[in-house]
């Protein structure tokens, strides 16, 4: 692992370069489900960010205590604890958001982004970088959700954050609220993120392990010589 990387990079990498939804393609299920509106997208993003920062910090603290063989159940327990806290808070202070998110709020427990960051990052790094990584990933997740929610809500419902828009409001294109429209917007955003990434680092190889955003945490890291 590169030690000389400045600390803020752990935060910024999650926003575009390793955006959890658009580049790592993690957490697809909540992404498609909650982005029918900006409000629920923002709520989902915020809830996941809180859980991500907390669980990353705690797992990083416990990284020398957790036995290698049962690490996944341990991570899940930690994550589930924070999700329960967040869920209770949302239920108490934002019941309408709780209703909008439905089953996807408790399902943050099994969100790949959170488990993935615990496995890939927090279990191998000290607390401060882990927390920053969690925050960066959370912000990236939220940004992707809000962007997708904006496109889908404006085109599909003719409103933004529940506010009726004057022009788009008269002829909403319903398909954007349905799963096919969700997949379509998702694909277009992934293509855009890919374009941004390849433009900023043209000198790096386009295929093989070195081009993969998961490169650092790859399970096949020890076989890397063979797989290039």
């Amino acid at each position: 692992m590169s030690e000389q990387k400045p600390l803020y990079r752990e935060f910024t990498k999650g926003i575009i370069k390793e955006n959890p939804v658009l580049c790592l393609v993690l957490g697809t299920c909540p992404t498609l489900a909650v982005t029918t509106g900006v409000k629920s997208a923002l709520g989902m993003g915020a809830a996941a960010t809180i859980v991500l920062v907390c669980s990353n910090s705690v797992i990083s603290l416990l990284r020398r205590v957790i036995p290698e063989r049962v690490r996944i159940p341990c991570y899940i327990t930690v994550i589930a604890a924070f999700v329960t806290v967040v869920q209770m808070l949302v239920k108490a202070y934002a019941p309408s958001l709780d209703k909008a998110l439905g089953v996807y709020l408790p399902l943050i427990v099994v969100n790949c982004i959170i488990l993935g960051r615990a496995e890939m990052f927090a279990s191998k790094h000290p607390v401060l970088p882990s927390a920053l990584d969690g925050l960066g990933m959370g912000v990236g997740f939220t940004a992707a959700l809000v962007l997708m929610g904006t496109i889908r809500e404006v085109l599909g419902a003719g409103s933004w954050f529940g506010l009726r828009l004057p022009l788009a409001g008269s002829h909403p294109i319903l398909i954007f609220l349905m799963p096919p429209g969700g997949f379509f917007v998702f694909g277009m955003l992934m293509a855009a993120a890919n374009r941004l990434n390849t433009r900023s680092r043209r000198h790096t190889p386009e295929s093989g392990c070195a081009a993969c955003p998961m490169n650092e945490a790859c399970a096949k890291a020890h076989e890397k010589k063979e797989c290039t």
Binding site: H171, I173, L174, I175, F176, M178, P180
Partner: peptide, 8 residues
Amino acid sequence: IVLLTSFP
């Protein structure tokens, strides 16, 4: 089909 689902 896109039109049918978008503008039923």
